[in-house]
Design a protein around this nucleic acid. Structure first.
Length: 455
RNA sequence: GUGGGUAUAGCUCAGUUGGUUAGAGCAUCGGAUUGUGGUUCCGGGGGUCGAGGGUUCGAAUCCCUUUACCCACCCCA
């Protein structure tokens, strides 16, 4: 029989068991934090009718969408979790309570060419707050607070949540009075970090922007410093554009409450060059980068939108939300060696090794352990003892429980501490006590260990 | 979609100006040690050299085609 060479598609992440445990631990942490802020879990299908996902008809996403037909149905794979949310909220409008807070962790698909830190199938971990008709601007301040809480809970310190305001930016572009599309200008200034001010100016010139325009843009995006400093220097643009002034006011409010929510200044900044995904954002926008790996790009982006579900309902549903690129985050952390292998949570606490043909006693003992919350596996294979104990070693089980002829005769079990190499033969009840107590005394495992010295 | 790179054992990679039967480390399996693992020692299995064509007495090596993957751009989590 011909053997098909096994392979995994480019841009698709597939992990070995140990890594998968770590990935799941991170996802679990996100879930817990999201729940602690009152978000409801949501799951939606990976496949949707193409007309749903393509409702917006935005040319670029259309190119990158996985789309196919099965029989007569035109199907597409979701490329984010926001569009499915919009459909869901429009569909279930009557049954939901607003503001509706939902989180969703799921895979999304993009038919782009894969590269470092960039996947074709990846997890997004989204939270969104949807209002009915109106939604307080304070929600826009809570979002960075949740991002901060999430990353802090993971044990991360070296990241920066950067925010900007779309009204502020649009208002400023209005002041320029040039007819270059705002999205084109944004795309250029967004590269400031990467290519520098000089190159940005060159690109603006090639867009056809005049000297005066470039001088203004250059001055605008060169405003840096603490949020307070930037807010101060932005004042000089006030009074010339209603939109700008509105954006300024929002930004001021958001900054005020972000600090009130307890986000440290080291992890938070106003960045006037952020322009991502601005086509549907209408207020605050967010982007989070790892301080040591800015080149990978944002691992958490989002913003305020005024009309989430305009393609699916006439109801006005403003919202604010963000998406953590979980796959990318995991990729970076693993790449930086931040995910601690040492003291990883063992998938099996006790491996029970029956040494006799009849394993009834082992089954009974295992049930006793599981009832105490001890993760227990029985080794059934008819191998030599060496192979059995070797398996316990391979799966990093902290304990092996040996039940052979001698133990059986006395109603006992031999408990071996795999790390210490010591063992004792005691009655089953006592063994359960010894093991569960020892496991309970373990120091809680930290998923992420930031080994690098903070600069 | 554009540009560059790579492809040899399960994995990471050597392989000289083209020259016997293509190697190493790790992994795996067996033995030393039949109820004691991680260390050590010994041994075994595992390759149509990405695919197809060409040049040559002879190709992993040179040429052409093709596919896949990687890196970057675009765009984005």
């Amino acid at each position: 029989m011909d053997i098909v060479k096994p392979r995994t598609l480019s841009g698709f992440m597939e992990l070995l068991p140990e890594k998968q445990l770590q990935f799941d631990a991170i996802a679990d942490t996100l879930r817990e934090v999201y729940k602690s802020y009152g978000f409801y879990p949501l799951d939606t299908p990976i496949l949707e009718a193409s007309e749903i996902l393509l409702a917006k008809g935005c040319g670029d996403t259309e190119l990158h969408i996985y789309r196919f037909t099965k029989g007569d149905t035109d199907l597409s794979m979701r490329f984010d979790l926001t569009v499915p949310l919009a459909k869901y909220v429009a569909l279930n409008y009557g049954a939901l309570t607003f503001p509706f807070r939902r989180f969703q962790i799921g895979k999304v698909y993009r038919g782009e060419r894969a590269q470092r830190g960039r996947f074709r199938e990846f997890y997004q971990a989204d939270i969104d707050i949807i209002g009915d008709g109106e939604l307080s601007v304070i929600n826009e301040a809570e979002i960075p607070a949740i991002i901060y809480r999430t990353f802090a809970e993971l044990g991360l310190t070296r990241f920066v949540i950067r925010i900007n305001n779309r009204k502020l930016l649009s208002g400023f572009f209005d002041m320029l009075g040039c007819d270059i599309a705002a999205s084109d200008i944004m795309r250029v200034i967004d590269k400031l970090d990467k290519i520098g001010l000089e190159k940005v100016m060159e690109e603006l010139a090639s867009l056809g922007m005049g000297d005066e325009g470039r001088r203004l843009v250059g001055g605008f995006i060169s405003q840096t410093g603490s949020p307070a400093q930037i807010l101060e220097s932005l004042k000089e643009y006030a009074g010339r554009s209603e939109l700008f002034d509105k954006g300024y006011e929002e930004l001021q409010t958001v900054v005020k409450y972000v600090f009130a929510f307890g986000v440290p200044e080291t992890n938070f900044a106003i960045d006037l060059t952020i322009a991502r995904g601005l086509d549907y954002y209408t207020g605050t926008v967010y982007e989070t980068i790892m301080t040591d790996h800015p080149e990978i790009g944002s691992i958490c982006s989002g913003g305020r939108y005024d009309n989430l579900a305009e393609y699916y309902t006439s109801k006005k549903l403003p919202g604010v939300g963000i998406s953590i690129g979980l796959t990318r985050l995991f990729f970076i952390l693993d790449d930086m060696n931040y995910i601690s292998g040492e003291g990883s949570p063992a998938n099996v606490d006790v491996l029970v090794l029956p040494m006799t043909d009849d394993i009834s006693a082992s089954i009974e003992f295992s049930q006793m352990l599981r009832e105490q919350g001890v993760k227990t596996q029985i080794y059934y294979e008819n191998k030599k003892f060496k192979a059995k104990i070797g398996y316990a070693d391979k799966v990093s089980a902290p304990y092996a429980a040996i039940i052979g002829e001698d133990e059986l005769a006395e109603g006992k079990v031999t408990v071996k501490d795999m790390k210490a190499g010591t063992q004792q033969t005691v009655p089953c009840e006592e063994a359960v006590g010894i093991i569960s107590q020892a496991l309970a005394a373990r120091t809680p495992h930290k998923i992420i260990e930031v080994k690098r010295e903070e600069v």
